[in-house]
């Protein structure tokens, strides 16, 4: 029996595209916050819907008084190639932070406040984590105006439905 004639030509599959990403930023160091911001902005540049959810120390990235004072962690990070004992010296973190900021500026990565504004203007949505806000006794007034609202974990999952979730 010849079955080869029964085989239909393989349908040309349209390239699969990501339509929506919800990115959780949970760390408050400079290197903990930027990857999530870059990915959210990059998503919007590609026409992908983007949500940012700031939780625990990640919330510092949207707290008006703190967002531009984030620091690079110089202790407990083997990729710094620096013994932790040196990392604890006064000024080390500030030094590493200013070095990194300089390099970032060269490739057009904006400061946190400007980046948040860019993402928001690009149509990305920003949310704060209710549990963290309660824990740290924060109010809406502490946040930059781009934060849409303070939401629960349940709200987050609802909002993330149908898309990818990225935890950073």
């Amino acid at each position: 029996m010849n079955t080869s004639t029964l085989e239909a030509p393989a349908p040309t599959k349209e390239k699969e595209r990501i339509k929506k990403v919800s990115i959780i930023i949970s760390k408050g160091s400079l290197e903990g916050v930027y990857p999530g911001l870059i990915m959210a902005n990059g998503a919007r540049m590609e026409g992908i819907e983007a949500n940012l959810f700031f939780t625990f120390f990640g919330l510092e990235a949207v707290i008006q008084k703190k967002m531009n004072k984030l620091k690079v962690a110089t202790v407990g990070n083997p990729a710094m190639h620096m013994p932790s004992l040196i990392g604890i010296l006064p000024g080390m973190s500030a030094f590493a932070t200013s070095m990194m900021k300089k390099e970032m500026e060269k490739i057009d990565i904006p400061p946190v406040d400007e980046f948040i504004e860019m993402i928001s203007d690009a149509g990305g949505h920003l949310y704060g984590c209710k549990a963290t806000v309660d824990m740290f006794h924060l109010t809406k007034k502490d946040f930059c105006p781009q934060v849409d609202s303070i939401i629960t974990v349940g709200d987050f999952y609802e909002m993330a439905a149908g898309g990818e979730i990225i935890f950073t």
Binding site: N41, E46, G47, D121, G123
Partner: peptide, 22 residues
């Protein structure tokens, strides 16, 4: 995009409206 919006005089919001979807 940052340079574009800073120097072309077209702000981010408008840029996304002019060229929707990327």
């Amino acid at each position: 995009i940052r340079r574009l919006t800073k120097e072309s005089g077209v702000p981010t919001k408008e840029l996304y409206q002019l060229f929707p979807g990327g």
